[in-house]
């Protein structure tokens, strides 16, 4: 199984060629930073004062991630999971893939790795876009200095890694649902319902029981809008528990489904 994995990942990556998933990820990642940039390029914006702030980067990060963590990234995960799984359903290729000598575990793992790689691309793109938002005004307006605070690479990296782990329950459940249901509306509807429920229950002390709440919670705690202490248990534990459950159940459902094409 392991010996085949690199080549199966390579062909899974080849498969997403000309698939709109990558464009969707890039556009979604740049969406909020682009709005922030447009706002900052307005002549009335006090750019000099903003760029001189000592909390410049934290503020820019929070502005860029607020809507992204709560709204955009969960939606992107749902849509990308469906788009990637639909490559097989739409082309009627599950049967050919399942009649190949590659074990189901390898196929499942390779698909998951490619999906995670596409989501990783989202994080790389949004980080690049945020840096672009910081420097573009100084490029456009020669009289505006670059932000005085140094670029906090470590903070960007740590927050990104945290968000990525917080998003794992969404990633794994959407991935599993997308592989199980031929009709993509089913997986998006289930994911959408859990997500709406999670957002609606954010003020509930046991909201961490809803697996799609972890990403918004991670952002809100990082931004100082919420405190870890208001929850009776460590959210990270729930995150890993859900991720493990969704991965295990998802894989077993994929491996033992009665009809393989």
């Amino acid at each position: 199984m392991i010996s085949q994995l690199p080549s199966v990942i390579a062909v899974e990556w080849l498969k997403r060629k000309r698939c709109p998933a990558l464009w969707l990820v890039l556009l979604a990642a740049c969406f909020v930073p682009a709005i922030v940039l447009a706002a900052r390029l307005r002549p009335s914006t006090p750019l000099a004062a903003i760029h001189a702030s000592t909390k410049y980067w934290q503020s820019l990060w929070n502005t860029s991630w607020e809507a992204t963590a709560i709204l955009i990234l969960p939606l992107v995960i749902m849509l990308v999971a469906s788009l990637l799984a639909q490559i097989e359903f739409r082309n009627n290729t599950w049967k050919q893939l399942n009649a190949s000598p590659v074990p189901a575990a390898t196929v499942w793992l390779a698909k998951l790795i490619v999906f995670l790689a596409v989501i990783l691309l989202f994080f790389i793109a949004i980080n690049a876009a945020i840096v672009g938002v910081a420097f573009m005004p100084s490029v456009v307006y020669s009289n505006v200095a670059f932000p005085s605070a140094p670029l906090p690479w470590q903070m960007f990296f740590e927050h990104s890694v945290n968000y990525m782990f917080s998003a794992l329950p969404i990633v794994l459940l959407q991935f599993s649902l997308s592989l199980l249901f031929r009709n993509f509306v089913v997986s998006i509807a289930i994911g959408g319902a859990i997500w709406i429920l999670s957002i609606g229950a954010l003020s509930w002390e046991h909201v961490y029981l809803l697996p799609y709440s972890h990403l918004p919670l991670d952002y809100l705690i990082g931004a100082g809008s919420m405190s870890k202490r208001q929850f009776p248990m460590e959210i990270g534990v729930a995150t890993y528990a859900y991720a493990a459950i969704f991965a295990t159940v998802g894989f077993l459902a994929f491996k033992y489904r009665s009809d393989r094409g």
Binding site: S7, L14, K15, C19, T93, Q96, P101
Partner: peptide, 26 residues
């Protein structure tokens, strides 16, 4: 094997489709 309708990736060329299976079958 080929079962029922041809199983091809419509968004790939013939060579790309074959490259996919060439790697699968090594």
């Amino acid at each position: 094997s080929s079962i029922e309708t041809p199983s091809l990736y419509g968004h790939l060329t013939a060579v790309e489709n074959l490259r996919f299976w060439q790697k699968i079958y090594r």
